[in-house]
Structure formats: structure tokens, C-alpha cells
């Protein structure tokens, strides 16, 4: 069962994508990024594996993403062939692992036991808790027309939770493709230095 959640605060932003993809699974709209708050998600696409009893068997992690885009030629949008292969292989590896778990359940080598699952949790801090509250208030103020104040709360949320690309990108301007990938995005990516944009997935075969 796939449950997809769109972190899209602006009404209608997700709609065109859902209508174009025509998914045969549940697609939910999360204007306040509530699921990000609950599961400590900081980027998309991130995912959680949950078993039949409602127990987390793989906590929040990048859903097979590899940050090959960082090696993209920013003028031509071309990605070197070797990097493109790593990106494609990562997706396949993750997808195959997911299928393995769906078929085998706890017998799958990709399903964590409780101790492993807890060890892979990212837990909330006081600052991230306050950041999510500020983000919710900011989005509410934007919706009721208190735009400047709303933007200030969203910016404060990003300051309090700098690891959250979800919060930052939701508050950033978008380009002609409706992506929050203007110059300020690339500056922020470059500022990561050796730090990862997508935290590596702790899974056999995934790029680290």
C-alpha cells in the first residue's frame, strides 16, 4: 500500500502533478507539512516503511535518492554519465529492497528489527519543535493574508531548523518550472560543502 503525501502549502500546487501522474494509490495534501513534523522528514522524497501492525520497520530516509544533481552542468542541465548511472542504480536498488520487504516481511534483510529501527531514528530537538510551530503559524498567516508576517515566521522556522530543505524550499521562490531551484537554492546547496543533500541510505548497494 502506497500512501503519498505532498508537502505543498500553496493551494493547487500539487494538483497538476497528481492529475498528470494519475496515481492508483492514495495521494494526500499536507499544507502544514504535518507528516514532516511527525516523522522528522527534512527533504523529499523521503519515506518510511510501516508493517501491518503499524510498526516502523525503516524510519525516515531518502527514498532511493542520490544527489547526482549536484554534479549537473547548471547551464545545460546535463549530468555526467557515470553520475547518472549511480543515480539510476540507487533507485533500482531501493525499489528492489522495497519489493523484497513487501514479499518477505520481517524475513527481508531490508526490514530493521526494533533495535536497528530505533538506532536509525532522527529525534526532534527543542529547536526543530519550535521550527515546526513557527512554520504552521507562518502558513496560516499566509493563508489569511498576513503575508509579510507569515513569511517572517516561515523564515524563522528555517533558521531554527536549517537541515530542513522542506521548510526552506517551501518558503523560497520558484523558477519557470515551478521548482524552488533559483540561484539562492544553488548557493545553499554549494554551502553544504562535504555535507550531503540527501543523507545516504543505510542499505546494501546504496551509494554512501
Amino acid at each position: 500500500m502506497i500512501v503519498s503525501v505532498a508537502f505543498d502549502s500553496r493551494e493547487g500546487d500539487a494538483k497538476q502533478w497528481v492529475e498528470a501522474a494519475k496515481p492508483d494509490y492514495v495521494t494526500l495534501i499536507d499544507q502544514n507539512h504535518y507528516v514532516a513534523e511527525l516523522y522528522n522528514m527534512v527533504n523529499v522524497n523521503q519515506a518510511v516503511w510501516i508493517d501491518e501492525a503499524g510498526i516502523i520497520v525503516r524510519p525516515t530516509e531518502s527514498a532511493g535518492a542520490y544527489e547526482g544533481f549536484r554534479k549537473m552542468n547548471r547551464e545545460t542541465s546535463e549530468i555526467p554519465e557515470d553520475v547518472a548511472k549511480i543515480t539510476a542504480d540507487a533507485k533500482i536498488t531501493y525499489y528492489n529492497a522495497l519489493r523484497d520487504w513487501v514479499n518477505k516481511g520481517t524475513a527481508s534483510e531490508y526490514a530493521f528489527d526494533a533495535e536497528q529501527a530505533r538506532a536509525h531514528l532522527t529525534l526532534r530537538t527543542e529547536n526543530t519543535a519550535r521550527a515546526h510551530a513557527a512554520f504552521s503559524l507562518g502558513q496560516h498567516l499566509l493563508r489569511i493574508g498576513q503575508v509579510e508576517e507569515g513569511k517572517r515566521f516561515v523564515a524563522e522556522a528555517s533558521r531554527l531548523h536549517p537541515d530542513s530543505w522542506n521548510i526552506w524550499r517551501q518558503g523560497a521562490g520558484v523558477n519557470e518550472r515551478s521548482l524552488a531551484a533559483n540561484a539562492d537554492f544553488w548557493e545553499r546547496v554549494d554551502a553544504l560543502g562535504d555535507k550531503k543533500y540527501y543523507a545516504p541510505v543505510d542499505m546494501k548497494g546504496m551509494p554512501q
Binding site: 502506497i2 522524497n45 521548482l179
Partner: peptide, 20 residues
């Protein structure tokens, strides 16, 4: 409205995405 708990009894792949 849909709740995650509606899907109890099935494995769930909970995945987040965004338009931006």
C-alpha cells in the same frame, strides 16, 4: 479525509514528495 490508521493490516510505504 484519510488516516494512516485506515491502512492497518497492510504494509505501508509512506512517501513524501512536493511540487517545488
Amino acid at each position: 479525509l484519510h488516516s494512516l490508521s485506515d491502512f492497518r493490516g497492510k504494509k505501508v510505504f509512506l512517501v513524501a514528495w512536493a511540487s517545488w
